[in-house]
Structures are given as structure tokens and as C-alpha cells.
């Protein structure tokens, strides 16, 4: 068996970020990753359901994991928060036999069972561990050598380590590795590991969220990055779609483009910017499109 994954899209890629869904499919195919889309999967709860009904959230996600087990593959996400919520579920169920039993009693009503045999992995990690950095390098046809690229990890792909644990949350390297593999120059910046503010939007839009968004965009701008790249569609929505609102907060024009991780890889693999949905961004990506043409 080659690289075969149960593809969990999450809500964003099917809603507000269609360019992420499309670019992931294109790039994955090119990289030899077979994505079996879980068309019966639901929302992971995004931390919202988890704040109301912990048991319901665990059960719904146990079903999502059971769907991956049905196709006998690891579950691949393209969203940081989905990654954390699903791994939280697996962590809790695998470490608490009574809880697992209670959840399975519910799943049984629908003829399902959570066994715990599928891991939860993220597209970023599979590019590194599955495809391999050297193989990725070998497939690059349009190195992004003229670009200073600011990595923006987003919280839930590094924290908390007891749920994520892929790399050192204090000193992660994965995004930089991929940026270098596609020929780009990683730019170290203050907000590299910071939060975009997305999850407090409806309660603290002005008090917290937009301030963080502004700080993040400013941080990349300060180091003269050409664009930021993120493995998370929630960070993308916040930093791209909300950047103008954040600019208004601080009274400074920033205009820093934000790319989804598969979009950046896709450019280096020779896909056209339009195929990757670079025209579907709020912050103009014209400068990038012009340079790669």
C-alpha cells in the first residue's frame, strides 16, 4: 500500500476556504497521496461543542474516527483545530476504558465502533513523514527562490504537546523544512508561534481578536516577508479575510498575502496560481502571481 489517507476536510475547506480544498486535492495527487474523502464525516465541534457538551463532542468525533477505521487508513486533516479536537478525542478514549465503553455503547446504536486503530495526522506532517522532504525537493519545478516566506504555525498544530506532540512546541521546524524544500527562504518573525485570535471572534472581536491579527500581520511585515504561509484554514480566514479590519484597528496598511500550505507547495510543483485558487483571497496575491508567471 502506498500513501493512503482517510481525508477529513472539516467545515472551512467545504465552506469559506474552497481554495484550500481544491489545492489540497491537486497537490496531494501530484505528491502521490491517495485521499479517500470521508463524505459522511461531521464537524469536529471546533472547540464550541466541547464547551457545551463534552460527551456529545467525544461521541461525534469517535464516529469521525470510526469512519477512518472503516477504510483502514489514518485520518488526514487540513485544519489545526480539527487535528486537536480529533486527537483530544483519541487521547481521552484510549486512556479511559470506561469512557471508551460508554462512547461505544452510543455508537453501537448506529452500528459503529471506535477501536482506536487510525491515527490522526495533518497534511503538513504527511508531506514530511509520508512523502518525504527529499522527494518533495525532487518534484519542485518552480523553486520559490525569490520569496521571503513567513511561517505561521497556528496554535493547535503545536499546542498542547500532550495532544499534538509532533514536534517541540517551543522550537518547531516543520513549516520551515517545507518552505526550504520548495526553494523559499523562511523568515523568522516574532509571531511565528502566536495566535491569530480566531476563536474569540464572537466574544472579543475588538478587545482581543483583531488586535492579535494585526500583531501577527505586522510581525511578518516587519521582517519583509513576501507572504505568510499557514497550515490552518481558521488562521487563514482570520489573517486574510479579516486583515483589513485588523489594519483599521491599528491605522496601518499592511496588505500581507496569506497562503495555505498546499497553495505554496502547489506553486513550486508548477500549478498555475488560478488552479490553486490564489484569486480567491481577500488580500491581493497579485504580486506573487506576477512573480511566478
Amino acid at each position: 500500500m502506498g500513501l493512503r489517507y482517510a481525508f477529513y476536510t472539516g467545515c472551512s475547506a467545504k465552506g469559506v476556504a474552497p481554495e484550500l480544498y481544491n489545492s489540497t486535492k491537486l497537490v496531494a495527487e501530484k505528491l502521490g497521496m491517495e485521499l479517500i474523502e470521508l463524505e459522511a464525516a461531521t464537524c469536529c465541534g471546533a472547540g464550541a461543542v466541547q464547551e457545551k457538551d463534552e460527551f456529545l463532542a467525544l461521541t461525534i468525533n469517535a464516529r469521525n474516527l470510526a469512519l477512518a477505521e472503516e477504510v483502514d487508513a489514518d485520518l488526514l486533516t487540513i485544519c489545526n483545530t480539527c487535528t486537536m479536537m480529533l486527537r483530544e478525542t483519541k487521547f481521552k478514549l484510549d486512556n479511559d476504558p470506561e469512557l471508551k465503553e460508554a462512547v461505544n455503547e452510543v455508537l453501537k446504536e448506529a452500528g459503529l465502533e471506535y477501536k482506536g486503530t487510525s491515527e490522526i495526522t495533518h497534511f503538513l506532517w504527511e508531506v514530511i513523514d509520508g512523502v518525504g522532504i527529499d522527494n518533495l525537493k525532487a518534484m519542485v519545478v518552480r523553486p520559490l527562490e525569490e520569496f521571503n516566506i513567513a511561517p505561521f504555525y497556528g496554535c493547535h498544530i503545536i499546542r498542547p504537546p500532550y495532544l499534538i506532540g509532533y514536534e517541540d512546541p517551543d522550537n518547531p521546524k516543520s513549516l520551515e523544512m517545507v518552505i526550504e524544500a520548495v526553494g523559499g527562504k523562511p523568515v523568522d518573525h516574532e509571531a511565528k508561534l502566536a495566535c491569530c485570535g480566531f476563536h474569540s471572534f464572537w466574544s472579543a472581536e475588538d478587545k482581543v481578536t483583531l488586535k492579535l491579527t494585526a500583531m501577527d500581520a505586522q510581525s511578518a511585515k516587519k521582517e519583509q516577508a513576501d507572504f505568510m504561509v499557514t497550515p490552518c484554514p481558521l488562521c487563514h480566514t482570520q489573517l486574510d479575510a479579516m486583515q483589513e479590519e485588523a489594519e483599521q484597528k491599528i491605522g496601518v496598511k499592511l496588505g500581507i498575502p496569506i497562503l495555505h500550505l498546499p497553495q505554496m507547495i502547489g506553486l513550486a510543483l508548477g500549478f498555475k496560481p488560478k488552479e490553486l485558487g490564489l484569486d480567491k483571497h481577500v488580500i491581493s496575491t497579485e504580486e506573487i502571481i506576477r512573480k511566478v508567471a
Partner: peptide, 10 residues
Amino acid sequence: WCVRCVECTT
């Protein structure tokens, strides 16, 4: 106002 960045637990 908490943004769920999970820095605190980390």
C-alpha cells in the same frame, strides 16, 4: 476573551 491558544497549559 480566551483565544484557546493553549499556551497556558503548555
